[in-house]
């Protein structure tokens, strides 16, 4: 625990306090700036996660074909993994960046809890975290009021909970890869509502400083997605509408992408390499070229 605090929690706590001084003691503004900085810092991981997720979604029709084709679970698993390999997509690619960000999130939550605690005991606890630098010491006590909120207390006005709900929903809607698999669709549908509701519920339970962080983090996430999305415009109308309100065929193309059904089917990986247009991103194209040359070597033999 000591190492965890030393490496993660304490530096984040002190960074928050330094930012608080820079923004003239508006701790709420410090949280917002800190959230933006953290999201920018982890942006390469987030982008990788988005791209991995999109790549996986484009391969869904073929995966389903494989699942139908092979009844034996072991064989099915082997063929699926083989297909992923051929396509140059790591199915865990969207999980790894999230795992890396995990300790940062937890440390940030802890840092916020320490800094916006508000009680005399938590102020004493804060003294143990701060570096003994005059510039940092002069920030204490931190200003807990921000807009209509006391950052150390839950926001009972429901405004913050609503912002968290809405921003989580939009981010979730953008980030969920389209799928034609009914089971996955059903899970996605549930998560699409469950996650925002849970975040909104937790916003009512935890210090509103955390709610500000969640809301800001979501908003930055949406902006990031917008820029990571590529040249095709996002159809915001369909993003903001509940999926049930949109025709089933349009669900997959809500972000301006063609639905998997509209795409060219993926060739059987055992016989043919994966088509280039199914693999977004230059990295994947590079891997495909590698696959093709391997195929040529096969031919030569």
């Amino acid at each position: 625990m000591f190492l965890w605090d030393l490496v993660f929690v304490n530096p984040i706590t002190n960074a928050l306090v330094i930012l608080n001084n820079i923004v003239l003691g508006y701790f709420g503004v410090a949280i917002i700036i800190f959230t933006i900085l953290m999201r920018l810092l982890t942006m390469p991981l987030t982008l990788r996660q988005i791209r991995s997720s999109r790549a996986l979604s484009t391969l869904q029709p073929k995966i389903q074909e494989l699942q139908k084709k092979y009844k034996d679970p072991k064989r099915r698993q082997e063929e699926t993994m083989k297909f992923y390999r051929e396509a140059g997509v790591n199915p865990l690619g969207c999980l790894l960046p999230m795992l890396v960000q995990f300790p940062i999130w937890i440390a940030l939550y802890n840092a916020l809890r320490i800094t916006v605690g508000g009680t005399p005991e938590s102020v004493i606890g804060l003294s143990q975290r701060l570096y003994p630098w005059g510039y940092i010491e002069q920030a204490v006590p931190l200003e807990n009021s921000f807009l209509w909120m006391d950052l150390g207390q839950p926001d009972t006005s429901l405004i913050l909970a609503f912002i968290v709900f809405a921003s989580t929903y939009v981010q979730q809607r953008l980030a969920t890869p389209p799928t034609t698999d009914p089971r996955t669709q059903s899970t996605n549908q549930m998560m699409l509502w469950m996650m925002p509701l849970m975040f909104a519920f937790f916003t009512l339970q935890v210090p509103s400083g955390l709610g500000v962080y969640w809301a800001m983090s979501n908003i930055v996430g949406v902006v990031m997605y917008y820029f990571a999305h590529g040249p095709e415009p996002i159809n915001w109308r369909t993003v903001l509408l509940p999926p049930s309100a949109a025709p089933a065929g349009k669900q997959a193309s809500r972000r301006g992408e063609p639905s998997p059904k509209e795409k060219e089917p993926v060739e059987e990986p055992a016989e043919e390499p994966v088509e280039a247009d199914l693999l977004p991103g230059s990295k994947r194209k590079k891997r495909l070229r590698h696959g093709r040359s391997r195929g040529k070597r096969k031919d030569r033999r």
Binding site: F102, N110, R113, V206
Partner: peptide, 18 residues
């Protein structure tokens, strides 16, 4: 994963009670 993060985080982030 995000849910797990949320659970762990909220478990660790109870409001400081006086």
């Amino acid at each position: 994963m995000a849910l797990a993060t949320l659970f762990v985080a909220t478990a660790c982030t109870r409001i400081a009670e006086p």
